[in-house]
Design a protein around this nucleic acid. Structure first.
Lengths: 113, 113
DNA sequence: TTGACATATTCCTATATCGGCATATGATAT
DNA sequence: ATATCATATGCCGATATAGGAATATGTCAA
């Protein structure tokens, strides 16, 4: 067997640094492919391919507009990553732990309302 | 060029689901290899190999004790993942955002003290 | 010393990358 | 219709897997 495909889930999609940079470059806005090519300085095919992977796992969403494609980040797709890693976050700062617990509790409240 | 090696950083090491399960299985305690083999039901060589990857990026630490090796999780190694993904966490719950901001502020305070 | 136990390492094969390059698809303007 | 712009896709190469099986290394016990 080989390595888990990059399109399996958010964890695998985001493992590649170039793809994280892509997500960072899109940020909170809506960005076009050529804009990303310019910002990151990598080839257009590479940008399109990376975006295809991110799209496959729902991390980015596209809107067609003529010959342009406007990409935006769908943060919710990263929630599984955040959830998993948050379990271990309490290790590096005890002060933050208490607030972290509070967050979890509040989220639970909100979920069960 | 090929895919980024799994031992490159925490992102790549943790992309594989089996390795995340391994980390979960160790949890907060200190666990032996054979104990993990038993808990996860995967072969001993696989467990050792996965642990080697996790060790390479500092996610787990080992303590030798006779013919046993006690593994424990080093959550700090997951901080980069947590930090990166936290940027996008504010998307999925506005109530949590304000507390998230507070967390960042408190951490900054703590860091600069 | 020898055997059993705990863990790590090596060899193997199939597979899925990433990046470069070329090309296809699709839309707009002239 | 045709040229151009914006984006996606295909083919290629080298490479690093994950898992299985076998084996090596290291430690303890009798």
């Amino acid at each position: 067997m080989a390595r888990t495909p990059t399109t399996t889930d958010a964890f695998n999609a985001v493992a590649e640094a170039s793809r994280r940079e892509l997500v960072d470059a899109i940020g909170a806005g809506e960005v076009t492919v050529s804009e990303l090519v310019e910002r990151l300085g990598i080839s257009q095919p590479q940008v399109s391919k990376h975006l295809a992977v991110l799209r496959a796992v729902g991390i980015v969403l596209v809107r067609a507009d003529g010959r342009h494609r406007w990409y935006r980040v769908n943060g919710l797709a990263l929630k599984p990553v955040h959830d998993w890693v948050s379990t271990f976050a309490r290790t590096w700062n005890s002060r933050l732990d208490q607030l972290d617990d509070l967050l979890v509790e509040l989220q639970h409240e909100e979920d069960t309302r």
